Amino acid sequence: MSRPLIADIDLGALRDNYRLARDRAPHSRALAVLKADAYGHGATQCALALADMAPAFAVASLEEAVALRDAGITQPIMLLEGFFDAAELPLIDAHRLWVAVHSDWQIDALLAYHPRQPIPTWLKLDSGMHRLGVAPEMFVARWQRLKAASTQVTALHLMTHFATADALDPTYFRRQMTCIETLRQRLEAPICLANSPATLAWPEAHGDWTRPGVMLYGSDPLEGANDASRALKPVMTLRSELIAVRELATGEVVGYGGRWKASRPSRIGVVACGYGDGYDRHAQDGTPVLVEGQRVPLAGKVSMDMLTVDLTDVPEADVGSRVVLWGEGLSVDEVARYCDTISYTLLTGLLPRVPRRYRNAEMM
């Protein structure tokens, strides 16, 4: 019998979440973000599941895009960070990719290259994230330069990224929107602004395109949930089983460092899952785990291949009992809070040794 840990990927839920993103911004096209192997879910399988729905996809690198092309994905694919070296441009041209550009050296390289056909290009504005992008006072000149290069560039769009679209306080978001709107009106530019939180919560940011990411995989990115974010469905359920049950007396400790100490006679269950699989080693005692659908607390430090839970209040649990680490019935967002992190790190951190099992592919 193989190790019982699997990541159960519900492609039907993925499609439902994409549909929600599309319905939330009915006058926009939704660019489905598949970077980081579709946030750990499997980029090829997720792209195929969305192939009849999404007009385009987005990834972080040329390698990610080429892997999708090799798998038969024909939709446009946007390189969200553009190219990292001018030597990538022939492959970008050959695979008919779209590029974001955020720096003068990229603009220079793009305009020095002679593609077989003009490359769809989105110019990134630094509207306040201060990570990538052209400063507002320099943006018009760069836009006009790209706009004039009709043999190299086509379908020019303005894009940017929000620093606080997930936050309850709208002050900084509105400051960014003011910057964006000033340039959009001046240039009459088509825009792509809305990430997952802006798609869910800020209709004024929807524009010509949205680019939903983590929401497609069922994680709520908002600091304060709304009706739309509460309707998201988990796509990944990380499942395992109990592989051992131990009886401990009051005062006995569990795991490395003896961090957890039994305050009463206790039953401890050992789950086949650990940080060697991508479960966060920083999970606190009390982090929720489902055993046969009942919540039990993590008890002790996570090990490389195992973690331990307190089964004292679930006497029927035994070896072979089903375990959910996150997913159906237990939000990955809640687990992430106990690990002092965010759902993105848990989902993208799931390691290759965990088998992905896909279901509802027949709905495609």
Rank of each mutant, 00 (worst) to 15 (best):
M1C: 06
P4E: 01
L5G: 03
L5V: 03
D8K: 02
D10W: 13
L14V: 03
R15P: 05
D16W: 08
N17I: 08
L20W: 08
P26D: 04
H27S: 10
L31Y: 00
A43G: 07
L48E: 11
M53I: 12
A56I: 06
A65Y: 06
I77F: 02
I77R: 03
E81V: 10
F83H: 04
F83K: 08
A87C: 09
E88R: 02
A94K: 13
R96D: 10
W98E: 03
V99A: 00
A100T: 12
S103T: 02
D104Y: 02
W105Y: 07
D108N: 01
Q117L: 15
P118I: 10
L123A: 06
K124E: 00
G128T: 04
V134F: 01
F139V: 06
F139D: 04
W143C: 10
Q144D: 11
L146Y: 03
S150V: 15
A155C: 12
A155I: 01
H157C: 13
H161M: 10
A163C: 03
A167M: 15
D169Q: 15
F173N: 12
R175K: 14
M177P: 00
T182G: 11
R186S: 12
E188H: 14
A189P: 07
I191V: 15
C192P: 01
C192T: 09
A194S: 13
N195G: 10
P197A: 15
A198N: 09
T199W: 11
P203V: 11
D208I: 00
D208K: 01
W209F: 06
T210Y: 05
G213Q: 08
S219Y: 05
D220Q: 05
L222V: 12
A225D: 12
D227H: 11
S229W: 12
A231H: 11
L242F: 14
A244K: 11
R246V: 05
L248S: 08
G251D: 08
E252Q: 15
V253H: 10
V254F: 04
Y256F: 09
G258D: 09
G258W: 05
W260N: 02
K261W: 12
I268E: 05
I268W: 06
V270T: 14
V271Q: 02
V271G: 01
A272R: 14
A272M: 08
Y275E: 10
D277V: 05
Y279Q: 00
R281A: 15
H282C: 10
Q284V: 04
D285R: 05
L290Y: 02
E292C: 06
K301L: 14
D305E: 09
D305R: 06
V309Y: 00
V314F: 08
V314K: 06
V314G: 07
E316H: 15
E316L: 14
G320P: 13
V323L: 02
V324M: 03
E334A: 05
E334P: 03
V335H: 07
C339N: 08
D340S: 14
D340W: 10
L347R: 11
L347V: 07
T348F: 00
L350C: 06
P352T: 03
P352V: 06
N360S: 13
A361W: 11
M364S: 10
M364K: 08
